[in-house]
Design a protein around this nucleic acid. Structure first.
Ligand code: MN
Ligand code: MN
Ligand code: MN
Ligand code: MN
Lengths: 221, 221
DNA sequence: ACTTATTTTTAGTCTTGTCTAAAAATTTAT
DNA sequence: ATAAATTTTTAGACAAGACTAAAAATAAGT
């Protein structure tokens, strides 16, 4: 079913998947180049190659879409990535800000059965350490309804279920502030002029900038 | 300390290491080509590249030796390989004949701390599922004294501690014959004309060919 | 010692994935 | 509607890693 692709090809598919989730329109050469960190000319080359392999639909100057096969491949790699991240945090005691780069390598391990065994070993987790849903083996992704904390009204209470920014810096800041997945967050006050918020996280009260609230994904209780 | 090498370069170092353990002399281009499954001309190219990187000592027509750095790198990859094999067997319930190809990929994961965490998670195993010693983090390899069953005299009793052939076919044959690591083997009879042996393995008696006895590594009790 | 046979190296080519520079298409601005 | 700015594609080049064919060095056989 799924072809044998190079790490590079797989990374392109993953990047196209993630960009096409944001915009719903075709992914442009330029944005893909920025995501992959390569020149647009290189992207054009690769995209033409992926089109030949029927992994993307591509028309000159019109950007690129994943085909059904392309999407399946991308989702499978994301499944690998997130399961390995769970393994690294749950079993090897890494912190949630340490695992992404390892998973970036481990996601490319070619495995018929390995990833299913890993899934079972981890007790079929539904979310990775950053709150992102783990696609099931058929490629279905649970769509959790979640929105940035910045959208939440004063007085409402919600639970932290994810983050928009998985950078080590951001995650370490959250650790320091004792904000973690599952934390109960109550919006105490919203500052008009800079959109900062005063919130209560579990027992603690603190103020956080708009920059932060945009990147905290919550579910209203 | 250890450079960033391609999978290919690492595989060459591993191959040179394993061949130079057998022969004690320089590794020839031809035997390396056979091991790697590539043409001798390709091997010459790569060996010259590794020599530039000071990972091997190489003189035209004289074969190749690992430098201290080359050996360190090779041993580190072997450590990775064997630890991942333990993980796959102990934690993911794979059989000992199923893990080699996965480990062949996993051994190349670049990891400062990952492999040390894995080691701890597995409780610092000393041997892989095929009885091969796992190098410690400093690159020291326990030299277990072991010899082929074919060397053992009639009447002697020994323990199976390793195999010379880790192919799936051989390992499955051993499973079928209820011969496993740790089994007690007593040599009941040696057939002169074909060097086959009649042995007792734990409770069972059976006859096995020279082909088999050469590949069973034992320690006399 | 000389001739074969074998091993090893060189020379030249190919594929993958990248790059720069320049051309072409599209979009934006006047 | 035309010109200017931007995006995207093409053309040509390069490094890594492999290959084939041919040359050079070493080893074996008489
Ligand atoms: Mn990640
Ligand atoms: Mn990747
Ligand atoms: Mn192995
Ligand atoms: Mn390998």
């Amino acid at each position: 079913m799924l072809k044998n692709l190079s790490h590079t090809e797989e990374n392109y598919l993953k990047a196209i998947f993630s960009l096409s989730n944001k915009s719903e329109t075709a992914v442009s050469t330029n944005e893909l180049a920025e995501k992959i960190v390569a020149k647009p000319s290189s992207v054009t080359d690769m995209v033409q190659k992926l089109a030949e392999k029927k992994l993307v639909d591509y028309k000159k100057y019109q950007g690129v879409y994943l085909t059904s096969n392309g999407r399946k491949t991308a989702v499978s790699i994301i499944r690998n990535h997130r399961l390995w991240e769970v393994f690294l945090v749950e079993k090897l005691d890494f912190k949630w800000d340490e695992v992404h780069d390892f998973a970036e390598q481990l996601e490319h391990i070619k495995s018929d059965t390995l990833i299913e065994r890993l899934d079972a070993f981890l007790n079929f987790p539904t979310h990775d350490p950053h709150g992102d849903p783990i696609p099931d083996k058929n490629g279905n992704i649970a769509q959790n309804l979640r929105e940035p904390l910045s959208n939440i009204n004063i007085g409402s209470t919600c639970t932290l279920v994810g983050v928009n920014d998985s950078s080590s810096k951001f995650l370490k800041f959250l650790d320091k502030s004792k904000i973690k997945l599952g934390s109960t967050i109550k919006v105490l006050h919203k500052e008009e002029f800079d959109n900062s918020m005063h919130i209560q996280v579990d027992k603690n009260k603190l103020s956080i900038s708009h920059q932060i609230t945009k990147n905290l994904l919550v579910k209203i209780i």
